[in-house]
């Protein structure tokens, strides 16, 4: 349990700082539990247009879709909000979680016939260490610490609420974003003009 007067540490992703170096992947892949396979993924966002990149790691949703759709009940969320990797004894490798996750995080590793994903370095955080990605990240695009600390250090704001169409998802992991935005909209409708759109679906 975290003492009341001690603020909890959280994980923050600040994509504008990401330099695309893959130190997070390299370091994550060294973990003794997933040996050589990184649980964090770095995507070049638009390789032909720019040098922008962004790390993708498990956002640890408050109400995780991956766990909700798992037919084998293999994905557990701990009391402190960590959505764990699938349990080897239960996972049937069906890919439901991979399809359901709005952030594209879970991956089925065929060699093990199991879904593995980031569990926020439970082995490290439980002993007072930072997750490995947040420890090595050269630019602090991945940061681990109290929310008040990062908000006092940076101009942008920590956000953990994401709007997917009509559904709002709250996560344990925060994304640093422009202070003018309240939530990160990911529905294209939010950016489209309403004029010209048919009242009725064309097939109706």
């Amino acid at each position: 349990m975290t003492p009341v007067d001690q603020e909890e540490n959280d994980l923050f992703v600040d994509p504008q700082r990401c330099i695309g170096c893959r130190a997070c992947e390299a370091a994550c892949s060294e973990c003794s539990t997933h040996r050589g396979v990184p649980m964090i993924h770095l995507e070049p966002l638009d390789p032909f247009e720019s040098v922008k990149t962004g790390p993708t790691l498990c956002m640890h949703c408050d109400d995780p879709a991956c766990a909700a759709v798992c037919p084998a009940d293999a994905i557990k969320r701990t009391e402190d909000g960590i959505v764990q990797s699938s349990q080897k004894s239960r996972c049937i490798g069906c890919s439901n979680c991979q399809i359901a996750c709005p952030f594209g995080v879970p991956k089925i590793y065929k060699a093990r016939a199991q879904m593995n994903k980031c569990d926020m370095c439970y082995d490290r955080t439980s002993t007072g260490l930072k997750p490995m990605c947040a420890t090595v990240c050269p630019s602090e695009a991945i940061f681990f610490g109290p929310k008040s600390q990062i908000e006092s250090m940076r101009k942008n704001k920590a956000n953990n609420q994401f709007q997917f169409g009509g559904q709002k998802i709250t996560t344990k992991v925060y994304v640093m974003m422009d202070t003018s935005e309240e939530t990160i909209d990911m529905d294209v409708m939010d950016f489209m003009s309403s004029s010209g759109l048919e009242e009725k679906e064309p097939w109706a």
Partner: peptide
Amino acid sequence: IGFDPWEAFPFNKGKLCPKGVK
């Protein structure tokens, strides 16, 4: 056989690029 971040070293405080990790 592997590495650990050295967080107490003042210049990089455990930070590493992938070359350092590997």
